[in-house]
Design a protein around this nucleic acid. Sequence first.
DNA 1: AAAGATTGACGGTTCAATCTTA
DNA 2: TAAGATTGAACCGTCAATCTTT
Lengths: 151, 151
Amino acid sequence: MSARSSHGEPLTRRELAAWRGMLRVSFRLRRDLGAQLTREHGLSTADYDVLVRLADDPARGMRMSDLADAVLQPRSSLTRIVSGLEARGLVRREPAPDDGRGARARLTRAGAAAFRRAQVTHLDGVRRVFLDRLTDAQLDQLAAAWAAIEE
Amino acid sequence: MSARSSHGEPLTRRELAAWRGMLRVSFRLRRDLGAQLTREHGLSTADYDVLVRLADDPARGMRMSDLADAVLQPRSSLTRIVSGLEARGLVRREPAPDDGRGARARLTRAGAAAFRRAQVTHLDGVRRVFLDRLTDAQLDQLAAAWAAIEE
DNA sequence: AAAGATTGACGGTTCAATCTTA
DNA sequence: TAAGATTGAACCGTCAATCTTT
């Protein structure tokens, strides 16, 4: 039974299987599903993540700063992503109503429609390569693990 | 009890927790540990992955094509990565002994030493942000999930 | 013709510096 | 002075085209 490694030691077999497995699976899935989004909808994974958040509240949109935090991107990356979406007419920028420094990003009608279309094929992909291969118990185990890691 | 979603439907709460959690955790961990590698050792995550593989057999090294498959990178990406490592004296390229088209990449003495140094702080990081927060049972559950996903 | 590997060009990401308003 | 946001420049990763050897 391989237990746990400590400082200076290599990982045990059990630790390696859990850690390298996550790296491999998440890398491949993000890459393959991202390629599908690009091929079929012209969206990068980062684009899609932003649309997901904006679709939570299509009427009000979101403050640029909050949006950046929500999608785990630096402010500057978010600016590029939103600029790209705006250039394609999927998102509109508006000055923040209460704070002249800020800006809000909001889905356009076309953006909402594009998102709904992309979401259907994307979620089908997530089910096919991830959810359908796991039992209900495994989904709960994974969720518990993520909660433990994020405190 | 939320069961399973199907075509055209949004994900259930259980499905969302498992899927989004993995995306968030793997993205953050890869990003933060990668930043530490860059800061303290001047290596990208991709550099480190290549060194890990080459360190498996420091004497013989590895065929470029096989190395690319092992680290899940396209051939062209691997060429860039190895060129960078070679420019810093950590890796050496040699013509394949049996096949004039091929090339082998092999760790230099300095490369092996740099890898051992980086590995210590990297594995400490992996333990701190990932392994130490999970029970033995959870490690086994994760490993089983990765196996199910990869068939 | 096919396989191994590399290169040119492009898009995406990020840091540091900058601009604007509070 | 600080916060919100953007921009310039550099870096990385990838595709398509190319070169070399089989």
